[in-house]
Amino acid sequence: MADDSKVSEKPPAHYLGHRERLRERAAVGGLSALPDYEMLELYLFRSAKMGDVKPKAKALLARFGSLGAVLSASLPELMSVPGVGEVAALELKLVHELAQRIGREPAARRTVISSWSALLSYVRVALQHEGREQVRVLYLDRKNQLIMDEVCNHGTVDHAPIYPREIVRRALELSASSVILVHNHPSGDPTPSKADIEVTQAVIAAGRPLSISVHDHLVVGRDGVVSFKAKGLI
């Protein structure tokens, strides 16, 4: 007669012990050796104390295309992925915010213009993977120190309005002497458009009577960062 207790036994879930094995591999081989989905898994362990998070990590990468794009996604976009709740989405946005603040530190500690590589690194972290156009303005004092970095507008996948008078008004409020305009091209190609060039000239014209200059306009894409000044467009 068959032993019913043995017949009814189910094999253990494939993911049992996976967390411990993944943490051990990370400790022994280093985090840099892990693929992106396993990096996401490790972080998602924080918000999901039990269960298999590998499908969730892979679904996030499939939905957004890259690790950077996952972290740049908005809360509603992250929560649209099956299994990703508000807690997990907030945890992921926390990583993105920390990365931006770390990237901002070198530029904020020194004269912005002489810290050009730090500035370019910061704007790439902030905007490279944004799915919609975003306009930021860096307000500088007379010594080119960063006073404020503000997001002044969000747009669509291919357009974000820039209002020259509002930028100049804000510069006056902050006692800024110059600004650096920054926006992204979600298409990935940072080549300035005709509209980008025209609106930059409009900001320059609005600021000139008040001695507020446009030091540069940076366009960020996945393929790099284009400087208007370096291209001779300012």
Rank of each mutant, 00 (worst) to 15 (best):
D36T: 05
Y37K: 06
S8L: 08
I234T: 10
P161K: 12
P106Y: 08
M39I: 14
M148I: 10
V220K: 00
D216Q: 05
L218E: 02
L67C: 03
E20D: 13
A88V: 09
K56I: 07
F228R: 03
D36C: 03
V81S: 00
E24D: 09
L16M: 08
Q201Y: 03
S32Q: 07
P186G: 09
I212M: 01
S115Q: 10
M39V: 09
E150L: 13
E105A: 06
L34R: 06
L119A: 02
L138A: 08
G68K: 06
A171V: 00
E77I: 03
E133G: 02
A57E: 04
G30H: 09
L71T: 03
V225Q: 03
M1F: 08
D158T: 08
D149T: 06
V225L: 07
M39Y: 01
V70G: 01
E173Y: 04
L16I: 14
D141G: 05
G85D: 15
M79C: 11
I197R: 14
P186Y: 05
R46F: 03
G68Q: 13
Q128M: 14
H159N: 14
E20P: 00
P35Q: 07
Q134E: 15
G17C: 06
P164S: 07
L75R: 04
V125R: 07
D36A: 05
Q100L: 07
E97L: 09
L44P: 01
L42T: 04
A126I: 04
S175W: 08
L174H: 09
K10W: 06
G51P: 01
G188W: 13
L218G: 05
I162R: 09
E41K: 01
Q100Y: 01
Q128S: 11
E105Y: 06
